[in-house]
Write a protein that binds this DNA or RNA. Structure first.
Lengths: 269, 269
DNA sequence: GCAAATTTGTTCGTATGTATT
DNA sequence: CAATACATACGAACAAATTTG
């Protein structure tokens, strides 16, 4: 008779009540004991139903408080394509901040945390240096209206510092952005960039910073940007930037050719 | 005493064995009974540990068979930016197929499933038509080397058919793509497009087609492309295309300015 | 093709721990 | 401190899916 197990039927029932608005955003569900009586099941079965709703991102449980319908965060939009007027790459330092302010929201960022590291894996591959080569890593935490928004880490070969770009080692933000700084200091011009977008589960650091549940329910969007300068051998990489964005509060937009001047609307899920 | 609960410690132990290669990709874990004896815990606690590994994408359980270390699918890369030579939008019909073949893999697609629907939500908003306006929906299922790769649905206002684009109603694939067809048939030229990228949990249809676990562990990347034609009032939308890609086997690439001619390498997780 | 064995899935009951109010 | 609510852990039984003999 019962095609689906009981916990799934209970979960579906609760889901429909949430989607019908019967249980509002942020509202508290009945307690496990109350649900046990309502559905005439054991508390463990109710917990299975709630667990299913939780892994599907519909509710969240808070020990000692109860189970609540999740409130969807107001999504923020990052435009990846370069601004045709400024030529600035989307999602980077000042360009990203300007986009946030354009939408009437308030961005902020931590000071840069600077480290010298050995290049590994994706970074070494994209900077075209051997594994273990010394690189500068500059990491910044960003917020919108106070909520954690992105983790951005940029990597530069140490050779740039030897050539005179000493400010890359400053643990302060570089006004105007490092791309502009490298243009002025070393005449390195970013002629193009390539973004690779991957969706994955957050690591422990990321879960902590973004306050994501540590069970990997909410994925992050990892955006790796390789910046190129011109050379006789064609475009040559000089920087790699990795931006990590929680998927529950971020959308990406890419423009190509002629598009309306009005900003892109958020996609409603 | 125990900082972490037992099920987490067991999960972490198994995780380290997986990451150390002690448990190979695709290998079967010991059965729940064996693990119960190994860790001296109850079967339910073992199951909690396995469930944690499963929601974190490290293992998958198959009823009647056992629990297995997941094998990561060879990721496929879709380039969203327009090809500077052909001007063709990335990820669309022929362009997408060419990219797959370039990488030595074999694409295939179902015939288009055509329906006439009432425009709703995002589609109505982006086509700039009132909710309920009749639109044509053309849906296609795509595969790479036999595994489900993407679900693509395009929406066109019915007025295009009235103007003479009758083939939009044919339940067959339009050779060269519908953008080229509309250019020839109605002189509608796509002067630009805007992509919106959202990550979300799959719906039931998508879970079925992509053979994803129905608990929402693996998200999908939803790519909504609005195509614009020129008009006196600026770029005007004439089509919306929604491509849904499972996040566990897809990466996106966006090029801007001068980048190397060599294809982008996959990001290693 | 069928039956048995194996393995995971569901559901109950119970007890105790931990976080919050 | 007490009450409330969720978290962890144990044990047990039967169901369902799959493989094997």
């Amino acid at each position: 008779m019962a095609a689906d197990p009981m916990y799934r039927r209970i979960a579906e029932d609760l889901r429909s009540k949430i989607e019908a608005g019967e249980l509002a955003r942020g509202a508290q569900l009945p307690t496990e004991i109350e649900l046990r009586d309502q559905y005439d099941a054991s508390r463990n079965t109710i917990r299975d139903a709630i667990k299913w709703l939780a892994t599907n991102g519909l509710v969240e449980t808070r020990p000692g408080q109860g189970t609540f319908v999740v409130v969807r965060l107001d999504p923020f939009i990052t435009t990846l394509s370069a601004d045709p007027e400024t030529g600035l790459g989307g999602g980077e330092g000042d360009a990203a901040f300007a986009e946030v302010r354009d939408r009437g929201r308030s961005p902020s960022a931590s000071e840069a945390r600077v480290e010298v590291q050995a290049a590994r894996g994706n970074v070494a591959l994209r900077l075209r240096v051997p594994e273990g080569t010394q690189v500068i890593s500059r990491r910044q935490e960003r917020f919108i209206d106070g909520t954690p928004w992105s983790l951005q880490t940029s990597f530069y070969p140490m050779t740039l510092v030897a050539s005179g770009a000493h400010r890359l080692l400053d643990a302060t933000n570089i006004p105007g952005g490092s791309v502009a700084y490298l243009r002025h200091a070393l005449d390195i011009v970013q002629v193009g960039y390539r973004d690779s977008v991957v969706v994955r589960t957050p690591d422990h650091d990321e879960s902590t910073f973004f306050k994501l549940p540590d069970d990997g329910r909410i994925p992050v969007i990892s955006l790796m940007r390789t910046g190129y300068q011109a050379s006789d051998a064609g475009p040559t990489p000089f920087r790699v930037m990795i931006t990590v964005l929680p998927a529950d509060r971020n959308q990406l937009v890419i423009n190509s050719g002629d598009v309306p001047g009005t900003p892109a609307a958020a996609v409603r899920p």
